[in-house]
Amino acid sequence: MGWSVKHKLGLVAVAVALIALPFVLAMAGTAWVRITNFAVLFILLSLGLNIVVGFAGLLDLGYVAFFAVGAYVYALLASPHFGLHLPFWVILPIGALVAGLAGAVLGAPTLRLRGDYLAIVTLGFGEIVRIFMNNLSAPLNITNGPKGINLIDPFRIGDFSFATTAGALSGPIKYYYFLLIVLLAVIVINRRLQDSRIGRAWVAIREDEVAAKAAGIDTRNIKLLAFAMGASFGGIAGGMFAAIQGFVSPESFILNESIMILAMVVLGGMGNIWGVIAGALLLSFMPELLRYTVEPAQKALFGRMLVDPEVLRMLIFGFALVLTMRFRPAGLWPETRHRRELDADRK
């Protein structure tokens, strides 16, 4: 496809903005760079879940389990816990692979399930993984139980560490650039998958599984592939999460996180990569914005805190979801196929 000059200029502008962004944010405080990094992690998770839920139409309520698997794989292979300190470029692919396998393990017994039933099983799976992490500390201490694993290695390439500040480049800014590169790669992978033989098969299964079978699609393998692909993205995000945090514990991987990731996918627009990204950005920045605005606003108005921002967050969050479902059931930025259809109606 041809790129017009306007497109090229736009692309350059976006690239410059993304490169300059952490320095602008750092002026408001390094905390904002960290917040942005976590937002990017959530975009990665949402894009992974989008393969399962958005493309293949399989409702997964336990997606955070794969995030957990990736995080623990990294933590176990790069911390004093086992005394292993493998480099991150070795661990991240391992984490993706292990999480992908976990995805297939979840997928295999659920092949005949759809909708609500699938949701229940995946929800259970997510909890099982978390409970395992919580209890695999005896008799053999693998996960260190609820205390979690500490002192996880940051990313390191030779002497270059992502955790230390070097001149204007603080740790979070280095991670920001790394995350940005991974994100770009994941977006490219997602887009290519979407327009491929496999991507069409996923959507066909979502649209009508019986017809997909009759049209010659081996729905079993293709569904397993969706679970595994989605899970492996979760695994990569988990590995980066562990390195950035330096600490993992089971309480980071509760059901709420799965629901949050799913909400990002649904709010943004299932199946549309850009919609999912928008949904993830919106839902990861909103609580932070609230935290920084609600408190001072209340103090200025009433002299003290009346409503905890955390409470308000859930209230606004719930309300926003209800409004979205009522007025934009396909999401804020629906899949192009849906939009194309809306355009056709307007003619």
């Binding site: 033989r197 496999i198 959507v203 066909a204 649209e207 997909a212 010659g216 196929r337 849906h338």
Partner: peptide, 23 residues
Amino acid sequence: RLFGNMTARENVMVGRHVRTRAG
């Protein structure tokens, strides 16, 4: 039983799945 939210062309392209290999 068509794939309603896919274009007509995409519907037929799905039919080629069984005769093609790309993974």
